[in-house]
């Protein structure tokens, strides 16, 4: 099912500039209902609040990393089906495999373009 432009999206990144860049690209792609979280713990709390249809997350963050948050999402019955796209500077093969094993929906390495983000969203929501 194609992505609903009104879908609530959560952007999780410890760098405010990166959150803003991702949010801006999502806006250009037509998604205006975007919320932010500074780390995995904050992101998980927001997700448990309900209503989110998609998560875009960084890997390296303080308090709770992106991969830890991904595992927590997949282990939670209420939110385990939420698609999670990792956007990260962690570009090692073992990181990618770890993310796939943890149940990532897709994976983008930084630096990335708006086209790449759109392509991945289209793959997640065909």
């Amino acid at each position: 099912m194609p992505a609903d432009p009104a879908m609530k999206i959560l952007v999780v990144d410890d760098m405010s500039t990166m959150r803003r860049i991702v949010k801006n690209i999502l806006k250009q792609l037509g998604f205006v209902n975007v919320e932010e979280a500074e780390n995995g713990q904050e992101g998980l709390a927001k997700l448990k609040g309900g209503g989110f249809g998609f998560v875009v997350s960084d890997w390296n963050m303080p308090i709770m990393t992106g991969i830890e948050m991904l595992r927590a999402i997949r282990a939670d019955e209420a939110i385990k089906t939420t698609p999670v796209l990792m956007v990260t500077a962690e570009a090692q093969q073992e990181n990618l495999i770890e993310a796939v094993k943890a149940g990532v929906s897709n994976y983008i390495v930084k630096p990335f373009t708006a086209e790449t983000l759109q392509e991945k969203i289209n793959k997640i929501f065909p």
Binding site: A91, Q92, L96, K123
Partner: peptide, 23 residues
Amino acid sequence: EASNATSMKQNLVDDILGKFGFS
């Protein structure tokens, strides 16, 4: 040093994802 030597580009990431069944 490791990330400089072995970091992947997006196309390689996509190839590996393809092997895991990601369309």
